[in-house]
Every structure is written in C-alpha cells, then in structure tokens.
Simulated assay, not measured.
Amino acid sequence: MTDSTEQLAPMPADWRRALAVVAHPDDLEYGCSAAVAAWTDEGREVTYLLATRGEAGIDTIDPVTAAPLREREQRASAAVVGVSEVVFLDHKDGVIEEGLALRRDITAAIRRYRPELVITLNHRDTWGGTAWNTPDHRAVGRATLDAAGDAGNRWIFPELAERGLQPWDGVRWVAVAGSTTPTHAVDATAGLERSVQSLLEHRSYIEVLTDQDPEAYCRTFLTANAQGVAARFGGRPAVSFEVFGR
C-alpha cells in the first residue's frame, strides 16, 4: 500500500516534447492542464491527441451536433494553456475498443511527434475504492502505455514505416494523471488560474453536468484537487502523476 504522506518527487525536467493522449475533450482539463500551462511557459512543446470528439457525452445534444461543438471547445481550451496542436483520432465515444487498431493509432502519433514524455489518464478499473472508471479511459490509458514501447519497435506495425513514420524509441516516461498511486507532481501555482479558464471553455458540457455557476464549479473542483496534493509536495498546490519509466 502506498504511504499517503510520502512526499512526491518533482516531475522529470530534462525533456522538450510531450504528447498527451486521452479519450475525450475535457479529460486533460479535469486532470492536468495546470501542469501543461507550466510546461508551455518553460518553452516545452505539448501536443494533445484525443481518441474521440466526446460526441456521446451530452445527453441533450445529438452526437452529430455535439462532435464539432466539443472539438471547437477543446481547441479553445488547449489554447488557454499554450497548446496549439490538437489531433483527433475519430474513434467512437463511449465504445472505444482496446486493441490493435487503437495501439496502432497512438503508436503512429508517437512516431510522428517524437515525445520524450507521454501523458495519459488513469487506466485502472477504478478511481480508488468503488468509483468505477469508464471503458474509454481504461482502453486509451492502457493502449498508450503499450504504444510507448510499440513506437520504438520496427517489427511492430511495420506498415507505419511504409507511411514514413519511422520507429521512435525516445519515450522516456509515461505519466498517468488521475492515478490514486502517484509518484511525482508539478507545482500548480502558476498554471492554476489558466487551468480554471481552460476547463471553463468546455461550457456546453459543464452546463449540463452541474447546476452551479460554471466558473465557480471549475474553480472549486480544480483548486480542491491541487490543494489535496499539497501535503505531499512541500505544501504547494500541485498536479500529481504516476510516472512509468522506460
């Protein structure tokens, strides 16, 4: 069992490019955009890769209408924290299949963007206790951990090399946001306000999720999360990650 008082290590800093891979619009904003803001402030390149457009996430909006709406909101949200490249894979929201097609798509993106750091969201069955995780999160998180290795193996998905995507064995870490067993953290002080504004860009989703004022909801949620990590990071509000080295 992880010691809940053990201090978290600072995230590795000797990298220039990161690829963040998640299932839906807003996954990164709920999970780690304050860290992304800090990284882009330092001149690091961060690219977002989303498996879906979140088209099945709003009960009151038909998926055909929701998909372009949520894509626009995600691009605006990413821009708030300094991310200009947002890529969508066109898997179907809610029914992402964990398998070779998903691994291949993520492997292709890793080879294209050549990150040293790959970021994803909690891939485990629960969020801790009995809070069950979604199939999409589990599938994308697990496929991302696998693809970090696939990207460097020329015998796995050789068809990618035929498309000009040569193997990339430069991924050094996969950092999982939203883990209940974190190992590292990033100071959220400088990026916290921008993380609030970034999540707020997902207004169409948030307005059906809560009866609270959207900005108050975003600020309360993200501030509480960051403060919840502080005791394990020298008293500083932070974003935590479980880091898998490679």
Rank of each mutant, 00 (worst) to 15 (best):
residue 147 A to F: 02
residue 178 G to C: 00
residue 214 P to L: 02
residue 243 V to M: 01
residue 2 T to V: 15
residue 174 V to G: 11
residue 235 G to I: 00
residue 13 A to K: 08
residue 67 A to W: 09
residue 205 Y to H: 15
residue 121 L to A: 14
residue 135 P to I: 10
residue 177 A to T: 01
residue 105 D to Y: 04
residue 137 H to T: 09
residue 207 E to G: 06
residue 67 A to I: 04
residue 11 M to S: 11
residue 141 G to D: 04
residue 36 V to Y: 06
residue 158 P to F: 04
residue 155 W to L: 14
residue 15 W to C: 04
residue 149 G to N: 09
residue 85 E to T: 15
residue 175 A to D: 08
residue 179 S to Y: 01
residue 191 G to Q: 05
residue 245 G to M: 03
residue 4 S to A: 14
residue 190 A to K: 10
residue 66 A to T: 07
residue 71 E to D: 12
residue 117 L to S: 07
residue 24 H to G: 06
residue 185 A to T: 05
residue 125 D to F: 10
residue 169 D to H: 13
residue 8 L to Q: 01
residue 211 D to R: 15
residue 56 A to I: 11
residue 191 G to H: 04
residue 235 G to E: 00
residue 146 D to V: 14
residue 16 R to I: 12
residue 59 D to T: 11
residue 134 T to N: 15
residue 92 K to V: 06
residue 117 L to C: 06
residue 241 F to V: 02
residue 188 A to K: 01
residue 9 A to Y: 11
residue 144 T to L: 13
residue 133 N to K: 03
residue 60 T to D: 04
residue 32 C to V: 07
residue 211 D to N: 15
residue 104 R to M: 12
residue 172 R to D: 06
residue 231 A to T: 10
residue 137 H to L: 08
residue 59 D to K: 09
residue 97 E to F: 00
residue 77 S to M: 00
residue 59 D to V: 11
residue 7 Q to S: 15
residue 78 A to M: 01
residue 48 Y to D: 05
residue 103 R to D: 11
residue 171 V to I: 09
residue 9 A to F: 08
residue 136 D to M: 04
residue 50 L to T: 06
residue 165 L to V: 03
residue 112 R to Q: 11
residue 1 M to V: 07
residue 173 W to N: 06
residue 200 L to D: 09
residue 34 A to Q: 05
residue 11 M to V: 15
residue 75 R to Y: 03
residue 67 A to V: 04
residue 241 F to P: 03
residue 208 V to I: 11
residue 114 R to S: 08
residue 114 R to M: 05
residue 137 H to I: 03
residue 147 A to N: 00
residue 47 T to W: 06
residue 56 A to G: 14
residue 206 I to F: 01
residue 70 R to L: 07
residue 134 T to A: 15
residue 194 R to W: 00
residue 39 W to E: 09
residue 158 P to R: 02
residue 56 A to S: 11
residue 122 N to C: 08
residue 46 V to K: 13
residue 214 P to Y: 06
residue 31 G to R: 02
residue 22 V to H: 10
residue 103 R to G: 08
residue 30 Y to R: 03
residue 243 V to K: 05
residue 139 A to E: 12
residue 200 L to T: 14
residue 48 Y to R: 02
residue 145 L to N: 06
residue 21 V to W: 02
residue 189 T to K: 03
residue 180 T to I: 05
residue 117 L to E: 07
residue 205 Y to M: 13
residue 159 E to Q: 14
residue 37 A to Q: 10
residue 100 L to W: 08
residue 45 E to H: 11
residue 15 W to R: 07
residue 215 E to N: 05
residue 149 G to D: 10
residue 186 V to S: 09
residue 68 P to M: 10
residue 18 A to Q: 02
residue 91 H to D: 09
